[in-house]
Write a protein that binds this DNA or RNA. Structure first.
Length: 119
DNA sequence: CTGATGACTGATA
DNA sequence: CTATCAGCCATCA
């Protein structure tokens, strides 16, 4: 029973996205757009959100995925938003208001990529 | 088929 | 800081 090409590619994309999400190191975070790019799907940030929503409880570190600039995608004060911020804070990520921020050292000549991924 | 929606983003005002 | 807009794409009514 060969699956449709469309369905197969959709699965492949979801798999790539899940890989990218799992690749986010503990104590760091990445935006939907960054995940999409890393999954080989530039410009498909919304797809990342769909996949995460669909994946639901799967063992993905969903809390490490934020909107652009570290903004939490959930509504401020919502259960999910508070949970995400709590989990991030528990991993040592600095939280300011409704978003996660990267603590940068003075001597950082690191690239933006390195900052985002704490390599 | 069309149109609305959403765990998005970057530009512009 | 907020608001609007144009891209983007799977999913649903």
């Amino acid at each position: 029973m060969a699956k449709d090409t469309a369905a197969r590619t959709a699965e492949a994309r979801a798999a790539a996205i899940r890989r990218a999400v799992r690749a986010v190191k503990r104590g760091s975070f990445a935006s939907y757009g960054e995940i999409a790019r890393r999954a080989g799907l530039p410009g498909r940030a919304r797809l990342v959100g769909q996949v995460l929503r669909n994946s639901g409880d799967l063992r993905l570190p969903w809390h490490r995925i934020t909107g652009a600039g570290g903004r939490v995608a959930f509504a401020p004060g919502s259960t999910s938003a508070r949970e995400q911020l709590r989990l991030l804070a528990a991993e040592g990520v600095k939280i300011r208001g409704h978003r996660a921020v990267v603590e940068r050292t003075a001597a950082s000549t690191r690239s933006l990529d390195a900052l985002l991924w704490k390599l």
